[in-house]
């Protein structure tokens, strides 16, 4: 009756590892997709404040980032200790904002331009003076959609 031969020998059976590359590749692709390469070196120390009414920024390509904070210790000889503005990877002045916005705008297709959002990553300890000046400049450049970056307040 028995067609199946009992295996002789006690050698432990080998685990088939042929699918291992597939599994690893799957993980690889997942991380490749969610990875956001940090494109600019952070020259300011920024701790965003906490808030509860948060909106998620949807399309990364439609967002430009303006960073405001005190320069980190390594750059304090160069830029001083007063709060500064960083656009891309450069410490800039408020007068540089229109060009920065325009450079981003031309890379976006025309029908998507109205939904360009400026994400303001501002250190909580900064005073409103510099923030106000930047807001005024944004209004003058007709960049009205603004997102004040904040962290979710822990319960």
């Amino acid at each position: 009756m028995s067609k199946f031969k009992r295996k002789t020998g006690k050698g432990s059976p080998k685990v088939n590892t042929a699918s291992l590359p597939d599994i690893v590749f799957m993980l690889l692709f997942f991380f490749m997709v969610v990875t956001v390469m940090r494109d600019a070196e952070l020259k300011l120390s920024i701790t965003t404040p906490y808030a509860t009414e948060l909106t998620k920024l949807e399309k990364k390509s439609l967002v430009n980032y303006l960073l405001i904070g005190k320069p980190i210790i390594r750059y304090q000889d160069l830029y001083g200790t007063a709060p500064r503005l960083q656009l891309g990877d450069k410490i800039s002045t408020i007068a540089d904002i229109p060009i920065f916005l325009e450079k981003h705008r031309i890379r976006v297709s025309e029908n998507q331009r109205p939904s360009i959002t400026s994400s303001l990553k501002i250190d909580g300890r900064v005073t409103m003076g510099i923030v106000q000046d930047i807001k005024t400049q944004l209004r003058k450049s007709n960049q009205l959609k603004v997102n004040y970056s904040a962290k979710k307040r822990p319960q």
Binding site: F31, V34, T35, V36, M37, R38, T48, A51, E53, L54, T55, K56, L57, K60, V63, T117, S119, L120, K135, T136, L138, R139, K140, N142, Q143, L144, K145, V146, N147, Y148, S149, A150, K151, K152
Partner: peptide
């Protein structure tokens, strides 16, 4: 190692035109 799970959240505000 290079992944930073993007958590870009914030308070959305519409500024008045200048």
């Amino acid at each position: 190692v290079t992944t930073t799970m993007a958590e870009d959240k914030g308070i959305l505000v519409k500024l008045p035109p200048w």
